[in-house]
Structures are given as C-alpha cells and as structure tokens.
Simulated scan of single mutants.
Amino acid sequence: MAKDGAKKILLLAGSGESRALAQALAWREGFDLHARLARPMRGRAFPVPATTGGFGGAKGFRAFLDDWQPDAVIDATHPYAEAITARTAEVCAELGLPLLHHERAPWVAGPGDDWVEIAAPEDCRNLIPERACVFLGTGRAGLERFACLEGRRIICRQLDMADGPFPFEGGEFLLSVPPFSVEEEMKLFHRLEVDWLVVKNAGGAGARPKLDAARAMGLPVAMLARPPAPEGVARAESLQDAMDWVEAL
C-alpha cells in the first residue's frame, strides 16, 4: 500500500543508472517505488526490493498499470532494449501516464579513435574484410544478425556460460569476468590477433576500456548506433535531471 499522498513510481530497471536512481528515490520521502527487472542484475543486490520478470507483452503491461495505477513511469532499461522502450512509450501514451526515458549519454569519438558508425549488424558485411579477426562486444542478444560476418573469425565475449552453440560458423564464445582494465584489454586483443571491434554505443565508464585499448592499438571499431529514442517522451541523461523530473511531478 502506498503511503498517504505518496507519488507512485514504476521504475523499469536494468541499467546502472536505474540502480543509482532507485537508491536516490529510496532516500526521498513522498515516493512509493516499484522496481521491475527483466532478469536479475549482475553484481551487488539491487538497492530496493524489486520484482523480476516480464509483464507478458503490451496486454500484460497495461493490466499491471491498471491494477497498480502509478503516477508516473521511468524507463531506465538498457539503451538497446528497443522493444521494451517502444512498448512502454506506446502504452503510457495511451493511458496518459507521465513517462521519463533515463539513459546515460552515448560515447563520442575523440582524437585517435577510428570509429565507423553502423545502423544495423548487417552493415558489417561490406565494412569488415574477410578473414579478419573480429572482437564482438555486443553481447548475446541478436547475435544471429552477425551471421553476415561468416568468413571471419568471430570472438564474442560473454559474462556467463553460453546456453547453446555459436549460431553460425566461424564464431566462438569467450568467457570473461569484468572489470577489465585498458592494459588487460590490450593484452587480450594482442593475444587474439584482433583486427576489428564491433561494439554497441552503450556509454558509461565500465565498458570504456576496450575502446581506449582499440585507440592505443590503432584498431578500427564498428560502432552500432543506438535505436532512436521514442518521440514525445521526456529524457534525462544524468541522475540529477531524472530526480528533477520526479520532483516536479
């Protein structure tokens, strides 16, 4: 039950930003927070009680909102959780619910970086030469779309054991546990004889060392652009901006 007069906030979590925002909201009076995770987050426990699992599609999401009746929704899922973000924007617009899209700023190329922005995984086909060794830092989701890279050696880093074989020939999983330093990434790329990196523009400091290593080694990077943000939705890149939006409800 919400405290009398408390604003009910549904936080769709999954990013580091969602963890920080949940902690900040937990310290503030006047808010009743419900955090929802698609799956348990790696590392330390989430700072507030959170339920885990999906809603059962758009219909299930509407049913949850009708039942809990939040005053606002904050989408702080991963920057590439495109389907969840689109569904959230559509349903909140239908119901007239205030919605904030909270995600960290993307990386921006600097001096010495050799980045080529690509709009889709299939763009790698004509960009990366055959027989090249490609370090795929995009995670497991959507891995089958990189089948266009057959004819290259593909190394896909995973943070936990893969639940099946590589989806196409020429690929292999590499199990590693973060954090990774720039020096460690350079040693890894040298040992594997990496020619190209393919990376999602996730932003943030945690995944940055591989890009700094690529810069130091003169390695080219195919940078997968972020999905377009939903139109007409408030956005916040910093914790302070997100808290200002919540306070203004």
Rank of each mutant, 00 (worst) to 15 (best):
Ala58Lys: 15
Trp68Gln: 09
Phe64Asp: 02
Glu82Asn: 13
Gly53Phe: 09
Arg87Trp: 00
Thr88Phe: 03
Phe46Asp: 02
Asp67Gln: 14
Gly57Asp: 08
Ala72Leu: 15
Tyr80Pro: 00
Ala72Asn: 05
Glu90Tyr: 00
Thr77Tyr: 05
Ala81Gln: 03
Ala76Arg: 09
Gly57Phe: 08
Asp71Ile: 13
Thr52Gly: 02
Ile74Met: 06
Pro49Thr: 10
Thr88Arg: 03
Ala72Gln: 13
Asp75His: 07
Thr85Gln: 10
Ala76Lys: 12
Arg44His: 15
Asp67Asn: 08
Gly60Leu: 05
Ala72Pro: 08
Val48Gly: 01
Gly54Lys: 09
Ala89Cys: 06
Leu65Lys: 10
Phe61Trp: 04
Pro70Arg: 09
Arg44Phe: 05
Gly43Asn: 11
Glu90Ala: 15
Arg87Ile: 01
Ala89Gly: 01
Pro49Ala: 06
Phe46Val: 03
Ala45Gly: 12
Phe61Thr: 00
Gly56Asn: 13
Gly57Glu: 07
Gly43Cys: 03
His78Gly: 05
Pro70Met: 04
Trp68Phe: 14
Phe46Gln: 03
Val73Gln: 04
Asp66Phe: 05
Thr85Arg: 06
Phe46Lys: 06
Thr88Val: 14
Ala83Lys: 15
Arg62Asp: 04
Ile74Tyr: 06
Arg87Val: 01
Gly53Asn: 06
Val73Leu: 11
Ala50Lys: 02
Ala81Phe: 05
Leu65His: 08
Ile84Asp: 00
Trp68Asp: 09
Gln69Arg: 15
Arg62Trp: 01
Ala83Ser: 10
Pro49Phe: 01
Ile84Tyr: 02
Ala89Val: 04
Asp71Ala: 09
Val73Asn: 07
Pro79Lys: 03
Asp75Phe: 11
Pro49Tyr: 04
Pro47Cys: 03
Gly56Tyr: 15
Gly43Ile: 04
Arg62Tyr: 04
Arg42Glu: 13
Asp71Gly: 12
Pro47Ile: 05
Ala58Gly: 04
Gly60Glu: 08
Thr85Leu: 01
Gly57Pro: 08
Ala81Ile: 05
Glu90Thr: 06
Ala63Lys: 06
Ile74Leu: 11
Arg42Cys: 02
Gly56Asp: 11
Asp75Ile: 12
Ala58Phe: 02
Val48Trp: 01
Ala63Gln: 15
Thr85Val: 09
Ile84Ala: 12
Ala81Leu: 10
Phe55Ile: 07
Ala45Trp: 10
Ala45Gln: 10
Gln69Cys: 07
Val48Glu: 01
Ala72Glu: 08
Glu82Ile: 13
Ala63Asn: 05
Thr52Pro: 02
Pro79Glu: 06
